[in-house]
């Protein structure tokens, strides 16, 4: 029993890691642009397909493929901001429409390029680190946890220690006052969407060998990410990370000890409960703008 409990904690930590990467990007984009990116799951999917194309098909090193996924999806994010999101800034309905359109386009492109069947990706490492008798973690999953801690730490340092980090936070809190300080909203938006997309892309790339990789894989992760940002408080990065941990633990534990479908229901109930008890989310203190 203790083994199962510990093993579930390990599994939940892994789930929290990639979920946090996806959710934080969603929060960043919403904070600066006022747009909820429904295509965020597809950014995740694109990252996974970078690994399919470069690592599985071209047999390039896995780490290089993951880095390429981060850069490529980041660039897709920058292009998306310039062409689709910028005209819709602070227009939630317009942002909804263009991001759903983008979602369909990206899914279709992935289907055109790779087909709808699930991709087989040979695992880069089969090694399992044994923590104690009966409790182990595949090195591949451990890498996801390390990468998430590293990237989220780097993001925190960027936001709290650098000039553009301050600018991004200021823009999210009061875009007009930020513009009066000489901060370009266009530039702030570009950085926010670029980073947000890159984080989703790297999450997809890292988990590609561990999950089912197919053009519609974004669905499951975007629903979880939406629950996470609502529970954490829309607009709060710290809240998103904490809520990712809470959600992943609840979901993984219920899946392990009860059932996967029940776990999805419990996840939604968790969101409902938070909305009833604390409508601004655990960390949300204010509405945006």
């Amino acid at each position: 029993m203790t083994e199962l409990l510990l093993q579930t904690i390990v599994n939940a930590t892994y789930a929290a890691s990639y979920l946090a990467l996806v959710a934080v990007g969603l929060v960043l984009i919403f904070g600066v642009m006022g747009i909820i990116n429904f295509a965020h799951g597809e950014f995740y999917m694109l990252g996974a397909y970078c690994v399919v194309a470069l690592y599985a098909d071209l047999e390039l090193p896995f780490l290089l493929s993951v880095a390429a996924g981060l850069v490529f999806v980041g660039l897709v994010g920058i292009a998306t901001e310039r062409t689709l999101f910028r005209p819709m800034r602070d227009n939630p309905l317009g942002g909804l429409v263009v991001s759903i359109g983008l979602l369909l386009i990206l899914q279709s492109l992935a289907t055109l390029g790779f087909g709808v069947r699930m991709e087989h990706i040979p695992p880069p490492s089969q090694a399992v680190l044994t923590l104690r008798e009966g409790v182990g973690i595949p090195v591949q999953r451990l890498n996801v946890i390390f990468a998430a801690v590293l990237l989220l730490g780097a993001l925190w340092l960027f936001l709290h220690r650098t000039r553009w980090g301050f600018a991004l936070r200021a823009s999210a809190q009061d875009p007009e006052a930020a513009a009066l300080q000489g901060i370009s909203m266009g530039q702030a938006s570009r950085i926010a969407v670029g980073i947000g997309a890159a984080l989703a892309g790297v999450a997809g790339a890292l988990t590609a060998p561990l999950v089912r990789t197919f053009p519609y894989m974004g669905h499951s992760v975007i629903i979880a990410a939406f629950i996470v940002i609502i529970v954490g408080g829309v607009g709060s990065l710290e809240g998103a990370v904490l809520a990712a941990v809470v959600y992943a633990f609840v979901h993984t534990f219920v899946t392990t000890f009860v059932d996967g479908v029940i776990a999805d229901i419990v996840g939604l109930l968790l969101m409902l409960a938070v909305l009833i008890v604390r409508p601004t989310g655990l960390f949300g203190s204010r509405d945006r703008g």
């Binding site: 000039r163 301050f166 007009e176 006052a177 901060i183």
Partner: peptide
């Protein structure tokens, strides 16, 4: 330099960080 109506300081930035944004350029 423009000090807007209603002050419009950045509420979730510290005093020091608010001043830093003023020096952004």
């Amino acid at each position: 330099g423009h000090v807007p109506e209603g002050r419009r300081v950045f509420p979730d930035l510290t005093v020091e960080e608010n001043l830093s944004t003023g020096a952004f350029l």
